[in-house]
Computed example of a mutant assay.
Amino acid sequence: MADIELGTHTIRSHGRAVAKIHKHDWIILILLIILIIILNVIEPFHRFVGRDMMADLRYPMKSNTVPVWAVPLIAILLPAFIIIGIYIKKPNVYDLHNALLGLLFSVLITGVLTDAIKDAVGRPRPDFFWRCFPDGKEVSFELFYVQLYDNFTTSVICHGDKGDIKEGHKSFPSGHSSWVFCGLGFLTWYLAGKIRVFNRRGHVAKLCILLVPLLCASLVAISRVDDYWHHWQDVSAGGLLGLVVSSVIYLQFYPPPYDVNGMFFQALHV
Rank of each mutant, 00 (worst) to 15 (best):
D95F: 10
G185Q: 13
F172P: 03
D127S: 15
L108F: 07
K166G: 00
I157T: 13
I117T: 14
G175L: 06
L108G: 02
R200L: 02
F198V: 10
K206N: 07
N151G: 01
G183H: 11
K137Y: 00
F144M: 12
H169R: 13
E167L: 12
L143P: 00
G163F: 14
S174T: 15
Q147W: 01
W189Y: 13
H176E: 05
L143R: 12
G163R: 15
F105Y: 15
I195V: 15
I165N: 03
D127V: 12
F144G: 00
H97R: 14
C132M: 11
K194V: 14
R196I: 04
G183K: 14
F128S: 04
T154P: 00
H159P: 01
V121Y: 06
Y94G: 11
F141N: 00
F198S: 04
K170W: 02
C208H: 00
V93F: 09
V156L: 03
L187V: 09
C182S: 15
I117A: 04
G193K: 08
L100K: 04
D135H: 03
K170T: 13
G122Y: 10
G122A: 09
L113G: 02
E167P: 00
L100F: 08
L103Y: 12
S171V: 14
A99H: 10
P134V: 11
L143A: 11
V204A: 04
F128V: 10
F133S: 01
V107Q: 01
I157M: 10
F181L: 05
T188Q: 08
S177Y: 12
T114L: 01
F172K: 02
G111L: 07
P124V: 05
K170S: 08
L187I: 08
L191N: 07
R201S: 01
L104E: 02
S178Q: 10
H159Q: 11
V180G: 08
T154S: 11
P134S: 02
W179K: 08
R123D: 06
H176Y: 12
D115A: 06
C158T: 10
G175R: 10
S140Q: 15
L143E: 14
R125T: 14
I195K: 11
S178W: 09
C182D: 09
V180Y: 11
T188M: 12
C132W: 12
L108A: 03
V156T: 14
F128E: 06
F181W: 15
I165V: 15
A192V: 08
D95T: 15
I165K: 08
L184D: 04
S178I: 06
G193T: 13
E138H: 09
H159W: 09
S174E: 14
D164M: 12
S178P: 08
F186P: 02
T153P: 03
F133A: 01
G160D: 07
L184T: 05
E142W: 01
A116L: 14
I195G: 07
G136D: 08
S140F: 14
K194D: 04
F129H: 04
I109W: 06
I195P: 07
G136Y: 08
D119A: 13
H203Y: 05
L101V: 03
L96M: 09
D115Y: 12
C158P: 04
T153M: 06
P173G: 09
L143W: 05
D119E: 05
S106Y: 06
Y190I: 11
